[in-house]
């Protein structure tokens, strides 16, 4: 090989390498894989379910009887009729994450679900859907937690997730929830959303309350979000703007959350929080766990994103004690 041929071959090799590199760069998707790139034109976005004229309402009711405290709590924020009107389609997002018995407090209390669903129907709701995409097998979770029977007994429709229940969503301005499967089918015909969650310690985020509970609306391999727990909770709160939230601190899971396992993980904190501000509800719930809002970064992030206030006292919550 002579010098001229060497240079010529080197040049051709260089051009080939540059072409291959350029092609790779052109094909590179820096955003990463979505759930179904063919459905990008069919992204769903949840509407705003809040009632603007009822914003900033909150009640904190003390007592051991959930039915009485939630009744009082709802009355103090205007009554269920202020939120649910005749013909409304209501979705109740519960925490049915685990196939765990009600006494362990890892899931939403079934009596509370039944009662709120009944109130919605009495207020004129045309349909009430109870749903969640649990961590464990959905059938077992709804059966063993007692939520399935509770929902049915109240005339609500129980919707367990199936493969066709999901549609891709992207949270506007979100960095994590992009083209990600959302449990969307239960939202068909729904114009009001109520979140009901227990107060729990959480090994990763420090607490699992209202905002963390929206995690059960995600599908796919969502456990990857645990590496970025505070940001995913923030984006969940950005994704769901509920009509009303009910944070059940009648019994709080103080340790070993989110699963618990022992009755000794629980404490009778005797508190029911009803609010239209999910950030305020979580901030108040944090105090039941002996924490401040400042101890839980996701609360401050949500406040900074304009989703509500961590200074729940500024809402002048109605306070009552029953029993």
């Amino acid at each position: 090989m002579n010098r001229r041929e060497f240079l010529s071959r080197t040049l051709r090799a260089g051009v080939l390498a540059a072409a291959a590199g350029s092609l790779s760069y052109w094909l590179y998707d820096g955003r990463g894989p979505g759930p179904d790139s063919t459905a990008q034109g069919n992204l769903v976005v949840l509407p705003d379910f809040s009632v603007p004229e009822l914003s900033g309402r909150m009640s904190v009711i003390t007592g051991a009887d959930r039915i009485r405290t939630v009744d009082m709590g709802l009355k103090a924020v205007g009554g269920i009729e202020a939120f649910i009107r005749k013909g409304d389609g209501v979705l109740i997002k519960v925490n049915a994450a685990f196939a765990s018995p009600p006494i362990l407090g890892a899931t939403t209390n079934p009596q509370l679900v039944s009662h709120v669903a009944t109130l919605c129907r009495k207020a004129g709701a045309s349909s009430v859907v109870v749903t969640d995409n649990p961590i464990n097998d959905p059938q077992s979770c709804f059966t063993l937690s007692g939520i399935g029977d509770a929902a049915r007994s109240a005339g609500a429709r129980l919707m367990l997730p199936t493969g066709s229940s999901f549609a891709p969503t992207t949270v506007p301005h979100g960095k994590l929830i992009r083209d990600w499967p959302l449990l969307h089918a239960p939202f068909q015909g729904v114009n009001k959303v109520i979140g009901i969650a227990p107060v729990k310690d959480h090994h990763r985020s420090g607490a699992s309350m209202i905002m963390k509970n929206w995690y059960g609306l995600l599908g796919g391999q969502r456990n990857i979000f645990h590496q970025n727990i505070n940001d995913i909770i923030l984006e969940l709160a950005m994704m769901v703007k509920p009509t009303l939230v009910i944070l059940d601190g009648t019994t709080s899971m103080m340790t070993n959350g989110p699963t618990g396992g022992s009755l000794s993980d629980l404490k009778q904190t005797r508190c029911m929080i009803v609010s239209t501000d999910q950030v305020a509800a979580d901030a108040c719930g944090a105090s039941l766990l002996g924490k401040r809002a400042a101890d839980l970064p996701f609360i401050l992030k949500a406040q900074n994103a304009g989703l509500g206030t961590a200074d729940y006292e500024s809402l002048n919550p109605a306070r009552e004690a029953v029993g």
Partner: peptide
């Protein structure tokens, strides 16, 4: 219920945030 088995890859499917 039947026996369930979980590995490090899917432990969070059983115990969620406590898997860490």
């Amino acid at each position: 219920t039947p026996l369930e088995t979980f590995s490090p890859e899917n432990l969070s499917d059983k115990i969620n945030g406590k898997a860490e």
